[in-house]
Design a protein around this nucleic acid. Sequence first.
DNA 1: CTGAAAGCGCTTACAG
DNA 2: CTGAAAGCGCTTACAG
Lengths: 339, 339
Amino acid sequence: MERGKVTSAQVAARAGVSQSAVSRVFTPGASASRKTIEKVRLAAAELGYRPNVLARAMVSGKSRIIGVVVAYLENQFYPLALERLSVALQARGYHILIFTAYNSIGEADAVVEEMMDYQVDGIITASVAISSTLANRAKTAQIPVVLFNRGQNDSGLPSVTSANVAGGRKAAEFLLAGGHDRIAHIAGWQGSSTGRDRQAGFLSALQEAGVAPFALIDGMYKRDIAMDCARDLIAGPTRPDAIFVGNDHMAFAVMDVLREAGLVPGRDISVVGYDDVPLSSWGAYDLTTIRQPVNRMVDATVEMIIDHIETPGATPQQIEIDSELQIRSSARIPEGWKK
Amino acid sequence: MERGKVTSAQVAARAGVSQSAVSRVFTPGASASRKTIEKVRLAAAELGYRPNVLARAMVSGKSRIIGVVVAYLENQFYPLALERLSVALQARGYHILIFTAYNSIGEADAVVEEMMDYQVDGIITASVAISSTLANRAKTAQIPVVLFNRGQNDSGLPSVTSANVAGGRKAAEFLLAGGHDRIAHIAGWQGSSTGRDRQAGFLSALQEAGVAPFALIDGMYKRDIAMDCARDLIAGPTRPDAIFVGNDHMAFAVMDVLREAGLVPGRDISVVGYDDVPLSSWGAYDLTTIRQPVNRMVDATVEMIIDHIETPGATPQQIEIDSELQIRSSARIPEGWKK
DNA sequence: CTGAAAGCGCTTACAG
DNA sequence: CTGAAAGCGCTTACAG
């Protein structure tokens, strides 16, 4: 029946109408008579015709493709976010062109440029920063950029994050309330806004309580680095009685190290993470953590990017989604606090 | 400097050459004089010109986009595969358009059709099956399809899987060698080739040993179903002394249930999984499992799809990558077997 | 090597 | 409502 690509012209010929008529039948909102619609639909079905999205994109200037830059897929938070992003965007008729990039801004920039080559309608960067130069290029090219789970204050770029400073504070307050006084922090990567903000919140709460941090180390969001940090922490003559870890992914590593050393998290040393990925609630870890509501963050991101696509003038916002403490058993529960 | 999109015509005007000359400078392999190249590169740089990939795709018929269908991103195996897939494809100048689909074939079909609308050069379906009708449409449209981690014998579609039957056998042989004789199987989804093959291998090894399976249940690759299965298994008057679980994702659930019931995996009940995702090696689980080498599977997939894209006539192959036993502590280690 | 021209498959004013 | 025509931004024979 169909050999190779079927075009609107072929459908037009078969239906006995003009090519423009075929186009109109497949263009939502365009006008066509009942009779034309019928003839065209029939011919299209017989031929197996479907409009070429790329051709449509060329003339309309809308590709309905959103570029998404990802990294850190080993941290369960991101695949989850990606999945929901994809589902939410698909539901609105957009699709995701994925690019992977790692830490360096240079790489992220290159990747974003490539995305622009594909005429994406918008760009979402998950946990990745781009240079202000490139942010400007995107702006002049009229391609909205939204940062997911990363802020970039200077850039004025729209972003969606959780309330990281407040979250860091909550972790500290919880640990303080639990009577800990040797609280270490294995921080999230200090080159990222999330890592810095969580640490800042944590430190300020400690300071207000007049407690000095037991130790402060950058765990870089990496499992093996976090393990090294944890080993160092428990090797010394005095140990911390609690560790606030910059994200769950590293907190699991810390708990593994503690247990290997015969220490029981929640009894011997309290561990608090950040993210509340599904694994945190699984029996093996049962991690107390600060929840980043991935659903709400994704929804806000989708809404924001579509908003910017549809109304080009829209003012960029930096949205912060509330983060809340999720109490489990990896850290001592203060009197009167409920699980 | 640049306002909106810069086109090759603008670059041509500035460089004082024809539009075709500009195109040639940006087309690898096309001929242009040294002088032309210089003038064009300069003008392009000044204007911030980059070729419109979509326009190129229209005329060349090559979009350099590969459509990837994913599901089950909660199973760590897939984000990992996706990441490597993306990196490998990016390195070869391709990019990934992601579509999410869940179990129903109808949905997968719809998604694959949408991909074809985007004129993708090829399609990779990860852990998802499509109808033979659609497979045929893809074939007539000359769009190669490769199944990743799923076979579909009847379809004759190219596929890359691990040696699931052999893997299932290995799990059984290991458990048998360990002296277990009440071996249960919480199987992978029986609607999938992986689930069926692993079970088939497992059963055949048991049968050869003259051992009847203690129980056989479809865990559907779902965490909560696996938990229910595990609870049922340990609730009865006699318990299994080993459980082979259809994938690691479910095996973690099983281990969580066992521990909650005060049972120690590897001592009271042996647990063997399938996949060897990173989490399996983490201290909290230390799961004995059958390794699916994701790197090699991805490499084979990439090679295969590119092969089919570049040489349209290529004969479809079903590649099976060896799977091997990874011994850890979640299951009793038979005398003389090494970790 | 280089330019003029056709064409990829569509959408969208423009007349009728 | 409908068709003829222009045009989206490129690549690629075709002459020169």
